[in-house]
Design a protein around this nucleic acid. Structure first.
Length: 207
DNA sequence: GAAATTTGACCATA
DNA sequence: TATGGTCAAATTTC
């Protein structure tokens, strides 16, 4: 269909928004992005926002386009462009740069360089779910989600996922726990990681 | 003061 | 020429 000059890869995924209180916020993919623009799109009632990797200085040209779907306000369509060359990137999780698994329930190919991943298999992959851990009420998660998932060493090979938690003392990450922090600030959940937080991870069922 | 957002202007492409 | 994507100054937040 539309092939681009060799390195122009793009990956489009749809995943459920994090529902905090009564507002939907975009899912955290573990990378640190810097917003550089926002535009209103004709057909969409929601604006489209543009992000690029924070570590652009080091030649990381990864970009990300985010759009909340009109039909499903609780679903975000995220389009990734370019590759993360920055090794300082925290949680690599999804974005396998055009993962090949074609014939599979849940994943359906669209065009040559576009891949749609249904939300149903996202929850386990989302780093936010892992990082936030207790913040997310597992009862609200879709079926297929293991409450004590992260603990299991036998899960799929999470490359950097392992290296990440081993957080180097001091260096730390950039403000990344934004979701938790924001939620915390918002609802004044205060100390303790009690699960009183009302984060609902809605797994959208594709029609 | 540095770093990240916001926002309208500007540019590119269909 | 209209629409989508990026720039960059002003502004806010850390």
């Amino acid at each position: 269909s539309k092939r681009r000059r060799g390195g122009d890869e793009s990956l489009t995924v749809r995943l459920p928004a994090l529902l905090i209180g009564n507002l939907y916020l975009p899912p955290d993919d573990g990378y640190t992005w810097r917003k550089y623009g926002q535009k209103n799109i004709l057909k969409s009632s929601f604006p489209r926002s543009y992000y690029r990797c924070t570590h652009k200085n080091f030649g990381c040209t990864a970009k990300k386009k985010l759009q909340r779907l009109d039909e499903d306000p609780h679903t975000y369509e995220i389009t990734y462009n370019g590759r993360h060359t920055c090794q300082t990137s925290p949680t690599p999780l999804l974005i396998p740069s055009i993962a090949p698994p074609p014939a599979s329930h849940g994943t359906e190919a669209r065009g040559a360089d576009t891949l749609i991943i249904s939300a149903s298999l996202q929850p386990p992959l989302l780093p936010s779910a892992i990082e936030l851990g207790g913040w997310i009420s597992t009862s609200e998660l879709g079926e297929g989600f293991q409450p004590h998932d992260a603990a299991g060493p036998s899960e799929r090979p999470p490359p950097a996922a392992a290296a990440e938690p081993a957080a180097p003392a001091g260096a730390g990450r950039d403000g990344d726990g934004s979701v938790a922090d924001m939620a915390n600030a918002m609802f004044n959940t205060g100390s303790s990681s009690s699960s009183s937080m009302d984060i609902i991870f809605r797994a959208k069922q594709e029609k």
